[in-house]
Amino acid sequence: MSLRRRSRPGESLIQGFLFFCGAFSILTTVGIVYEIGKEALLFFGDPEVNGWKFFTGLKWQPQAGEFGILPLLNATLMTTFFAMLIALPLGLCVAVYLSEYASPRLRNWLKPALEILAGIPTVVYGYFALTFMTPLLRLLFGKDVVDIYNTASAGLVMGILILPLIASMGEDALSAVPRSLREAAYALGATRLETAVKVVLPAALSGLAAAFIVGVSRAVGETMIVALAAGAGPNFTFNPFKGAETMTGHIVRISGGDLSYDSIDYNSLFAIGMLLFFVTLSLNLISQQIVRRFREVYE
């Protein structure tokens, strides 16, 4: 019997294939950066376009040669703000309830219910914004105040979409705080509220911050709700009851129509896309970094 190393071609073939599968995701990233970057560069290289004005211009009117991102960016920030206005306080409260108050049995019921909320397709949320939230806002504030398309409605509904995300990430962060800290607080005569708010919450702060950042990133990249409810047409306004198109909404509307390749309109979408990609990527990287730090403290 020989103990010599045998060559196993099948084995290495499989390993090679598996490596390809793993490395494939790198190709995706490279593809995103290359393709979107290439078109974006074509856009910035166009004589009609002024890179400085892209970031500072208050008008986005491709037909007039005006490419200022601010109206789109502003609308994105407004919807994001309204989304977090709903999602952060509610999501945090739900997270605290799940991790500090709910019995295990109740938790086993509540979490899947929240998962359902998170699993509903975003186009359904868009429908909800348009057919429920907007009429509600118009009822509350008056039809002459609230337009049919407005950023508030889209943002608030987006908050409902992001709420379960914050709740579940928040709950993870809170339950990662060791039990011994809670016991220490109780043993000093703290109430459940004081234990939760003054000991557990601060100890989980970085995890909660990570949840918040992921929520913001999600809101910035969210598309269908704003495409349906926020308004079709760039509009630089701080009035949440007026329609204004976000970055994602603009991309969807323009690319859904007839678009010819190699036009400046086509390229401009990729410039917006690139901005979107880098904003969400950096938000995600920051949150991952925070989570990793947080883990090191408690593991």
Partner: peptide, 16 residues
């Protein structure tokens, strides 16, 4: 609990 305090097996200071 305020009047009957407790010290645990594993030291558990607050992260403060």
């Amino acid at each position: 609990r305020r009047r009957v305090g407790m010290v645990f097996q594993k030291p558990n200071p607050f992260p403060k």
